[in-house]
């Protein structure tokens, strides 16, 4: 198991794993509010208090929830984890789950779209929507889409 320090790092490592094993890899998000009465939580608190007395001594008895992201691929046994307790990160983490979802769905990756302002990104979305309805019927759906994605990239590069 690997516990990663930053969400960014977790995302890059997960995207690599997903690229290698897109079908078997799964991502689990665990939102946990600890039980204040449980022995385990009390032990944890006591340990903390011993480590840094003054800081934690006056800590209020409020459960500190955690959010844990875990990527697991049963085939290779790889586990990637990231933990946080900051509410400010929730939005960003779910967005990264969406980006990773694109790997799972085998959609072309739009890395540049993140840097571009929303006005530029919108036409790109419309384009992909236009091409996809035709996709299921024909076998050349992939090259079509790939061409569309390439077109987007070229456009953006041209704008810059």
């Amino acid at each position: 198991m690997v516990l990663l320090e930053t969400s960014q790092e977790w995302q890059t490592q997960t995207s690599r794993l997903l690229q290698a094993r897109p079908t078997t890899t799964r991502i689990t998000t665990k939102y946990n509010i600890p039980n204040l009465e449980s022995e385990r939580y009390e032990k944890k608190l006591n340990k903390k208090r011993k480590r840094d007395d003054e800081k934690e001594a006056d800590a209020p008895k409020v459960p500190l929830a955690t959010l844990e992201l875990k990527t697991y691929d049963p085939e290779s046994g790889v586990v990637l984890k990231f933990k946080t307790n900051r509410a400010a990160e929730v939005g960003r983490l779910i967005t990264s789950l969406g980006t990773l979802g694109r790997y799972m769905a085998a959609l072309p990756v739009k890395e540049e779209a993140q840097d571009v302002a929303m006005e530029d990104a919108e036409p790109a979305v419309d384009e992909t929507k236009d091409t996809t309805p035709a996709a299921p019927s024909t076998n050349d759906a992939k090259p079509q889409q790939g061409g569309g994605g390439g077109g987007n990239k070229k456009k953006k590069k041209g704008k810059k």
């Binding site: 959010l67 509410a87 789950l97 969406g98 929507k129 996809t132």
Partner: peptide, 25 residues
């Protein structure tokens, strides 16, 4: 596949609203 972006935008809202016990800024 077509709905992924719309889904995760809503997903983020629901999670932000629901996960109130995390440390606020």
């Amino acid at each position: 596949p077509d709905d992924i972006e719309a889904f995760f935008a809503r997903y983020a809202e629901v999670c932000k609203a629901g996960m109130q016990s995390l440390k606020k800024r």
